[in-house]
Design a protein around this nucleic acid. Structure first.
Lengths: 138, 138
DNA sequence: TATTGTTATACTCTATAACTATA
DNA sequence: TATAGTTATAGAGTATAACAATA
């Protein structure tokens, strides 16, 4: 049930993202970039559950659109300091608002108690390490 | 949150499936095949959300292991009647039991009320058509 | 030698279009 | 012509390894 639901949610978000010129990974990056700069691309990749090699095109696109800046860290010139720009914040917040509106509408079919329990349970499970779900083979 | 959770659940199920020589799609097929035969592969594919061309290798493997039979429908020799075998039922039930044990253990970290609300909400949402989640673009 | 960012490559999933045999 | 099953192919998405610059 969970995987198809995730697919449906991703598909529903796609038009919103496209209208703002963002990919799913691009949106993930902007969300995780918070408001303080990150010290390296590797750290960012680890936090959003992607490989460092996979986010490069994503960062290129975000930088080209002026949503982030990449500067070599003066203390360790191998690393790049990642910062979200004001325009990046704007598009991130706009997309987040639109997606939350859609999700609230989609979840409105649930009884309010189930709805809040669902979100609470999902947040709880999302914080657990992947190994928590690994189980017995037989 | 939903997509990574789905990934974690799928990853946790993988060893169970492998121990029984089943793929994820193979397990989906056995689950959907219920106890009465299905009239065509196309119908089966539609029910499990796959393309008819994608389940062919899956059916080949299931048939080779003796978990299903494929017979040409005498009334329409283009179609294949799909039936689960007793051995297919056994492996399906064994895998289902193992997976449910794992999931119950994984969900045991939730307060009982949240846990049942989560399952109720997921079942509710899983029954909705995909269009339910499609929303406004802006 | 180890690490950051990058590039290249391979492998899996998935979607689509052709082909056959039946209708 | 239309449909069921099959095959082939192309496109995402992902994972891994190799490389240059820096430490």
């Amino acid at each position: 049930m969970v995987v198809p639901l995730g697919r449906a949610l991703m598909a529903a978000e796609q038009p919103v993202l496209r209208a703002h010129g963002l990919s799913m990974w691009g949106y993930s990056v902007l969300l995780r970039l918070g408001d303080e700069p990150l010290r390296s691309q590797a750290e960012l990749a680890a936090r959003i559950g992607a490989d460092k090699s996979r986010i490069i095109d994503v960062l290129d696109a975000l930088q080209e659109r002026g949503f982030i800046t990449r500067h070599a860290d003066p203390d360790d010139r191998r690393a790049r300091l990642l910062t979200i720009t004001p325009s990046g914040r704007r598009v991130r917040d706009a997309v987040q608002r639109a997606i939350q509106r859609n999700e609230e509408r989609a979840l409105a079919v649930l009884p309010p108690a189930d709805r809040s329990a669902l979100l609470r349970a999902l947040r709880h499970l999302a914080e657990l390490p992947a190994e928590h779900f690994a189980g017995e083979t037989r």
